[in-house]
Design a protein around this nucleic acid. Structure first.
Lengths: 211, 211
DNA sequence: GTCTATAGGCAGATAGAC
DNA sequence: GTCTATCTGCCTATAGAC
């Protein structure tokens, strides 16, 4: 399911001569830069240099930095939702789905990146309003998806937790985002994997009250 | 213990006429700005305007932005360590210590801020090397402290977890940093508190293998 | 210690030619 | 669609007066 998070090339959007839509390639570079350096530490000049075009060309495709940020954020959120749909398509128990879910994050981390929305969450106070709204939406959508998985796990008897499914879903999102955040300074994938193991193990274990 | 994280005024460092050391007040403002906006989104001009001095005055106290960043980071780490010492000073069971620990984060969040090192972790790729080293040190020190608390909890029988204490300590740090990160876009303290509840509840519950 | 003044660079953005 | 040229503004930083 990691495919869905990579830079897909929809055949129907190929232009006549260009190898790829410039608009799309701008998003690719911008997304990677924001994920590695942050929204406030990347510039039109960075993107332009990497694509070997001028800043003016970027402004043709995206009016300003705010619009570019909004566009790449929208695409990221859409792709993430598609990745979740892929997980849903295949029947699996709840713990397996959680592992698949964590692997989406792992794929991003592998490319030295932070979850785009996790990065933007840190910078939230400096973002244009439209971007803020999408970041918030990303988290609530993830919580909703996880709530369903957790509910399934509770019914299956494969997962055990004391709080509500919504509350626990929020905890899962927080734990994974935090695991990425902390793993990056150490440049250590193992740190992230261990955190995922601890998280899933804690959701498999049972409360003393239930014994 | 939240006191230790606020702007203390060491009496011995008062100057003759000034109400406070300017150097210290610069750190206060800089710290708050980095915690709310990030290292890359705050400037000497911001700090100068807030203190009603010129940028040149700031350069007298801290040669450049990198030195200012390093100084406020060092102070933050030192204060955090002091706060942990305060928790240690009073005998308490492991779960209580975890609650006290989480309250350190809550105090920061109350002021609309992100954990300074969590914020800098997001921006890690753009930071000067000396700052990176201190951020990493912050996390390892926290893990070491938490490892002791978790070990205590295991011995007391108040905490249960399958992985090693070090591994679980890393999970706790990740979960708390992530809970702050995600709570901020929602501007919702309750979100953070719920995540803490879920975390501590999951550490109190027992693995099926132990039943 | 703090100021004024200024340097030099890069940011985001626009006009208009091709 | 992409370019050159340019604008305005803010950034970090420094020199030198007080």
């Amino acid at each position: 399911m990691s495919r869905a998070l990579e830079s897909g090339v929809p055949v129907g959007t190929r232009s006549g001569t260009a190898e790829r839509n410039t608009a799309e390639r701008i998003l690719d570079v911008g997304e990677r830069l924001v994920q590695s350096r942050g929204y406030n530490a990347f510039s039109y000049a960075d993107v332009a240099a990497e694509l070997d075009v001028t800043k003016a060309a970027l402004h043709y495709h995206y009016a300003g930095k705010a619009e570019l940020g909004e566009a790449l954020l929208k695409r990221y959120v859409k792709r993430f939702a598609e990745a979740l749909a892929v997980i849903d398509a295949k029947p699996a128990d709840a713990p397996s789905k959680l592992v698949s879910y964590a692997e989406l994050y792992l794929e991003v981390l592998r490319r030295q990146g932070m979850c785009l929305c996790g990065m933007l969450a840190a910078e939230i106070q400096t973002l244009p309003e439209p971007m803020r709204a999408i970041v918030i939406r990303f988290f609530t959508d993830n919580e909703t998806w996880l709530s369903r998985v957790l509910k399934q796990g509770r019914q299956e008897g494969t997962l055990h937790f004391t709080g509500s499914t919504r509350e626990t879903a929020r905890f899962v999102v927080a734990a994974l985002e935090g695991a990425m955040l902390v793993a990056r300074p150490f440049d250590d994938l193992a740190r992230f994997r261990q955190a995922v193991s601890s998280l899933i193990a804690s959701l498999r274990s049972q409360s003393p009250a239930h014994r």
